[in-house]
């Protein structure tokens, strides 16, 4: 696949990576750092990828791993309040389900985000987070249950 310039890559995949990062990290500045680190890693590694879909998956994988690392060694203490995310991005409609999503435990939140927000298949998510497809299916199943429980509790 012909290599794109990073300006094109940022235009094409920046928003997708930012959505993944903000749902995992719940913090705008950290999410921007994660996206930036993802593109920097792309420049450093200069991976040879067969297609645009492979490139997209590679970027999602790197971004997810960077977010997980950042969670482990979190520098910024304060997360954005859930209401702040809603207000910043005007997520009035259907935001109840989004509010519930960011309260779901991290490992389930990641697979729910990759599957329902970014449209990755179970097999693709397995490659992104280095788990087996059956483990991903289990996390999706439990994640859906947790999401539903939180959503219903919040709505009551």
């Amino acid at each position: 696949m012909e290599k794109d310039s990073y300006v094109n890559l940022i235009a094409q995949y920046g928003d997708m990576l930012y959505r993944i990062a903000i749902v995992i990290l719940k913090n705008q500045m950290d999410a921007q750092d994660a996206v930036q680190s993802t593109f920097i890693k792309y420049i450093e590694k200069s991976p040879r990828l067969a297609s645009r879909q492979h490139l997209k998956r590679w970027l999602a994988k790197v971004c997810t791993n960077i977010c997980i690392d950042m969670l482990r060694q979190r520098k910024r203490q304060a997360d954005l309040h859930i209401e702040d995310i809603g207000a910043i991005y005007c997520l009035e409609e259907s935001s109840g389900i989004f509010d519930a999503l960011i309260k779901v435990e991290e490992k389930f939140r990641i697979v729910l985000t990759l599957h329902y927000i970014e449209g990755y298949s179970v097999d693709e998510i397995a490659k992104i987070i280095n788990r087996t497809p059956s483990a991903v299916k289990m996390r999706l199943k439990k994640g859906r249950r947790l999401l539903k429980e939180i959503y219903e509790r919040e709505m009551c």
């Binding site: 928003d15 930012y18 921007q32 991005y89 409609e93 989004f98 985000t113 329902y116 927000i117 449209g119």
Partner: peptide
């Protein structure tokens, strides 16, 4: 699928 709709506005 509402998750996708409500996160469409999250952009850099």
């Amino acid at each position: 699928n509402l998750l996708r709709e409500c996160t469409d506005k999250i952009k850099l």
